[in-house]
Amino acid sequence: MTTVTEDYVLPGGTTAIRTLPKISLHDHLDGGLRPQTIIDLAATIGYELPTTDAVELGEWFSTQSDSGSLVEYLKAFDVTTAVMQTKEGLTRVAREFVQDLGSDGVIYGEIRWAPEQHVARGLTLDETVEAVQAGLDAGVEDVRATGASIRVGQLISAMRHADRGLEIAELAVRHRDNGVVGFDIAGAEAGFPAGNLRDAFDFLAHNYLPATVHAGEADGLESIKGALFDGRALRLGHGVRLAEDITVESEDEEGSYVVLGPVAQWVKDREIALELAPSSNLQTNAWGTELHEHAFDLLYQLGFRVTVNTDNRLMSNTSLSRELFQLAETFGYDLDDLQVFQLNAAAAAFLPLEDREDLADQISAGFESA
């Protein structure tokens, strides 16, 4: 299993990626549990697991998620959400989540999760948000006690196949002064366009709460269009299939001649951030089966605002440092490239401008001293 204590030194370099300041924009709470925590929480509620050995359980999640299908990939979450149905469970998971981000050098993280999936044992939606926030706050203090610094925010997700979008949007706005920084829709993408939740997005717009939308992962350009124009998305969750709107007309020794379609051009011109998660994308067959086939480098070289994310650290057996290391190893990126990815994320964070500028300053200082 990947651990957050691995340093991940760039090929030919000496700098540990783990020690660099980083920003995580796309990281699911129910996809980042520690295997031992799952075992402990399952025992308290009598939930049967495939194994009660932490190493074996971690391997089970990785294998289960490596299916080549988003629908199959999502089935692994039945286990994690089952042990996140109590205040104690939610708080512990959230606290450890922040601890693990801090250990990986993350200075700002947006943690997305769907409260509606955590009410099976009687909690109200508001109680779930409060329990998670208690854990996040405790995790922040834990990181500070180590001498490091981290800031986090909740991204409240509505499940796109359910009929609770407006209710969840109202929940997000209700807790905007209690840790919530934005809204998301998640779940099965194909067949469930953002337009189905237009009333929720209208409500968010009227209340000035920003939204990111899962799009361009398990569905193509029509889904991305829906995210942009029905969802008013300021960021695209994954968005890798935006590359379907990019045509390489010709290639020669001097380079390639590339034509952007209207959707790709719109996203690029407005600097709409792409929350790319390479390892997860390969697992779900969103784009390619090997990292060198992934559209990340194409999008980066063309000037899109690309960011690097884990999506689900447990399911992908990964960390943000590992994702950056693998990209650098595959595409020959250096520290300057990795800094660009973090500055892109800082610019796209759902924070006030002054706070985003402060994050950018922290990133620049950290990379300059590396």
Rank of each mutant, 00 (worst) to 15 (best):
L242N: 05
A243H: 00
E244H: 14
E244L: 11
V248I: 14
E249Q: 10
E251Q: 14
E251S: 13
E253V: 07
E254V: 12
E254I: 11
E254L: 14
E254S: 15
S256C: 10
S256E: 14
S256R: 15
S256I: 02
S256T: 10
Y257I: 14
V259P: 04
G261T: 01
G261C: 08
P262G: 05
V263M: 03
A264E: 04
Q265P: 01
W266C: 09
V267G: 03
D269M: 05
D269E: 15
D269I: 01
E271R: 15
I272W: 02
A273Y: 05
E275R: 02
E275S: 00
A277Q: 00
P278D: 05
S280P: 05
N281L: 05
L282F: 08
Q283C: 12
W287S: 12
T289P: 13
E290A: 14
H292K: 13
H292S: 15
A295H: 11
A295D: 06
L298D: 04
L299Y: 02
F304E: 02
F304K: 04
V306F: 05
T307E: 03
N309G: 04
T310V: 04
T310W: 01
N312F: 08
L314S: 02
L314N: 03
S316I: 07
T318M: 02
T318F: 07
S319M: 10
L320I: 08
R322N: 15
R322T: 10
L324M: 15
F325C: 00
Q326H: 14
A328T: 09
E329T: 12
E329K: 13
T330E: 02
T330R: 06
F331V: 06
D336R: 15
D337Q: 13
L338E: 00
L338D: 00
Q339G: 10
V340P: 10
Q342Y: 11
Q342H: 13
N344K: 09
A345P: 11
A347N: 13
A348D: 01
A348P: 11
A349K: 06
A349S: 12
F350T: 06
L351C: 06
P352K: 07
E354T: 11
D355T: 11
D355G: 07
D355P: 01
R356G: 03
R356L: 06
E357W: 09
L359M: 02
L359V: 03
A360M: 14
Q362C: 09
I363V: 12
I363A: 01
I363R: 03
S364R: 15
G366Q: 09
